[in-house]
Design a binder for these strands. Sequence first.
RNA 1: GGCGACGUAGCCAAGUGGUAAGGCAGAGGUCUGCAAAACCUUUAUUCAGCGGUUCAAAUCCGCUCGUCGCCUCCA
Length: 487
Amino acid sequence: MALRLYNTLTGEKEPFIPRVPGKVGMYVCGVTVYDFCHIGHARAGIVFDMIYRYLQFAGYDVTYVRNYTDIDDKIINRANQEGTDYRTIADRYSAAFDEDMDRLGMLRPTIEPKATDHISDIIAIIEQLIAKGHAYETDGDVYFAVESFPGYLKLSGRNLEDMLAGARVDVDERKRNPMDFALWKASKPGEPWWQSPWGTGRPGWHIECSAMSMRFLGPSFDIHGGGKDLVFPHHENEIAQSEGANGCQFVKYWMHNGFVNINSEKMSKSLGNFFTIREVLELFDAETLRFFILQAHYRSPLDYSDQSLREAQAGLARIYEALALLDDALAGAATATEKVSSAAELTEKVAGLLPRFREAMDDDFNTAQALGILFDTIRTLNRFLAEGGGKSAESRMDLQHLRAAVGEIGSVLGLFQAGPADWLAAREAVKTQQLKISPAEVEELLAERVSARQNKDYRRSDEIRDYLLARDIQLVDTPQGTSWKVK
RNA sequence: GGCGACGUAGCCAAGUGGUAAGGCAGAGGUCUGCAAAACCUUUAUUCAGCGGUUCAAAUCCGCUCGUCGCCUCCA
């Protein structure tokens, strides 16, 4: 079963055939560093991190480039607001971005270039575009002439006439066509600038991605990704610039992740309905957020709410609880000789787990289905362990294989890497901090309850249990004694 | 106005022609002094609605309704 992926350019799922067998060049649009990232950025990061990991898992040698756009109007505006320079802003939010991505457990891309380190590359491309008649200079600005590029709008599937008809495009007498976009902007007083053949100025938005992708991946490469909102104009313009300059196909497969919504509406800065990654991580752990995002297919819209995050956490806990039981079983001796009734089913599920996982992932990175398959396997495991199969000598290999397979799947999804006991303990610790009762008091009452139960004073025993439950303490009675956890 | 996507159980969510994964929540059971936890079982004759194509459709086509997105910076 070969990998197939949805290509925005063709609107279809296609077999993935890299340009050079065994190697993949992938460029993903990073962020413009002028503010903290919200969970929409988290989704994009996590989705392409998962894709990067899976491509490597599938045996490809992947060169993954993700840029920082560190010069842009927004950065300059922010700097002006704060009375500082653009570099301070860019550096501050680049560092914040790195910190957020690290906390979310993302692998670092192979290369993370900055736009301002590639000004000369940018200028070289613009010169080439002017030479080929795709761009023109006016008053120190340089524009791309969209009408000179026949393939314009092929990615977003529109046409120029329709777009102009009802469009809100700023009228600029100096542009040949209202849709022409800036490659280079002359600097205004007080703005950062670089020397160019057209005077002092700075790059327009879009051209930096053409320059950096070409520098590190060549004029033509395999995968280009980003959020759905970048299809137009950003990626459309990148195609025009790169193909206009190089005369060859820019990107073979275009991939776009869906939005994170709030109440079915897109989370965005302009609507003000966004949560930063930092805010969310104060309420939920990073793995829960990652699990939540991967429970949906990457192209689907995803509605964010406290409720859905809590549900994701419950689901993730279910997996860690099963893994904790599995680890316990593996740590114990396998001495039992009789077979439990679900042993055969376990064998079958374990054998099928990785192939089914691959099949789901090969189908356009269907992580939602992949996780469903894992849950299906976990259910069989739970039953097997509940039947006492953990001590079975015969099934020991199955359990070992299962543990290894879950570890492997987890490493591709960036999940389940914590020790299950540790993860559960950490979750417990966070909850304990929020309690309105001290652990010492709990222990005291617990001791009282034990003696009450020994004296068959169930009225007192239940009273204590209810009292603790009202304070979110859940008692767990087992034949070995009573322990407690935070509800 | 142009272009596009989506509409699957109480909620979330897979499923692109062969008869509805999974999670959360709920119900019943096992266990228990009774509970809880855990485990087991169970919850859509049906996939927004109406037509059509087909031996066969949630899946393809048309129309209607609803939601959302892009067209302006945006992951």
